[in-house]
Design a protein around this nucleic acid. Structure first.
Lengths: 214, 214
DNA sequence: CTAGATTTTGAGAGTTACTCTCATTTCATG
DNA sequence: CATGAAATGAGAGTAACTCTCAAAATCTAG
């Protein structure tokens, strides 16, 4: 019914998992049910008006179970398991390729995959990030985690220390910029192409502001 | 139980405050009392173990009053109103000065002022930002606000649209990088000079990573 | 200085996200 | 089918907020 399923692994993995036990399958179902219920309720009533109890009711589980699956309410909405595959993809890029080009390529792949899979959820998340402080906070938090992962990949490429200030700052300002592009997209009513925005964002971080003199 | 007498003659204070009414002065005192109590309790017990009730008790106000002065527990700790003066300072820089130099100058001034005034609080905040997710979230949030303010100043200088993607991304990646420098400082036990770290952070954002090829 | 208007405070009840514990149910396995 | 392990549900508990209303403190006129 509601095509809002977001629990799958982002970058198309083999669909047929051989005999997952009944238990495992049920867990996946429950997880999806909770998330689907949450999206639906938020769409109907907004984020704040939606309580865990309502979510539990609609997903036909107990509130306890909701908390067992998701540590916080925001996590039900966000839970980005995109980081790992993206990093993998990044590492798989040819070693000679300029760093920014690699990032660009991976970002493009990721957004294409996400938008193809479930554009509505992508939009809803960005929208909630703009409107709900708690969700935005959670996004910042995971942005910071992404930055941490990025450092390792970045250090591999450059030979620099992943914990050095330079690498840390670079990684963080990169993800920060990308997140801002995402927020801009949402704030402007999703009228632009997300991929193009991210591209422009990367341009800024690579070359500075358009009219700026070096 | 009011040991304060003399609602009159506020002229006796050293820096001559143009007569703030008793009401206003009390409010400032209350605000400070709450914050002082909070810092002390956190130092003694840690952030999570410190409840609003304890804070209220020690500050000798009611819990209601605490919430009246600070919307959230994290705000008691953070309350950064450095943004406005910093922006003012930034705007006051000569128009011809390269943008990055202006930022550098203002950052240096701000950190010097803060560290001179109360280094322990500066350190404690950074430390809490590293350790307590809720505080870190709040820091990200205010970082994002700073970014928003920065956009205006930036747009003034460059003639670009403050709401354009480019300006937004640039401002955000700038504050993101600076925040990461701050976190690095805290994570490394404050052993480095904060001003120097911020300087290096700005170098990265200006010139890219040290060994990177353009 | 006093009286009345205004602002600030405290007390208390209510909501909600989240935690912990324990008994019960559901699945896995020999 | 029996036994152990895992998942669930029920319920009590905590703490950060929110709202309301009456009491207290401060301000302002007269």
């Amino acid at each position: 019914m509601n095509p809002m399923t977001a629990a799958r692994t982002p970058f198309s993995s083999p669909a047929d998992r051989p005999q997952l036990g009944l238990r495992e399958r049920k867990k996946i179902k429950t997880r999806e049910a909770i998330r689907t219920a949450t999206y639906a309720l938020i769409k109907e009533q907004g984020y704040d008006a939606t309580t865990i109890e309502q979510i539990a009711d609609r997903a036909e589980v107990s509130p306890s179970t909701v908390f067992r699956y998701f540590p916080t309410k925001e996590d039900i909405v966000l839970t980005d398991e995109y980081d790992a595959p993206m990093l993998e993809e990044l590492r798989a890029r040819p070693a000679g390729e300029p760093w920014m080009d690699s990032v660009r390529h991976v970002m493009r792949m990721a957004t294409n995959a996400l938008m193809a899979e479930d554009p509505e959820v992508v939009r809803m998340r960005a929208h909630l990030g703009v409107q709900v402080p708690a969700v935005r906070s959670r996004m910042f938090e995971s942005m910071s985690e992404t930055g941490r992962l990025l450092r390792a990949a970045l250090a591999d490429r450059t030979g620099l220390d992943p914990d050095s200030l330079e690498v840390r700052v670079y990684a963080m300002s990169l993800v920060g910029g990308l997140m801002e592009a995402n927020m801009t997209w949402a704030e402007n009513g999703f009228k632009d192409d997300l991929g193009a925005l991210l591209d422009r964002a990367l341009d800024v971080m690579e070359h500075g502001l358009p009219t700026r003199n070096p």
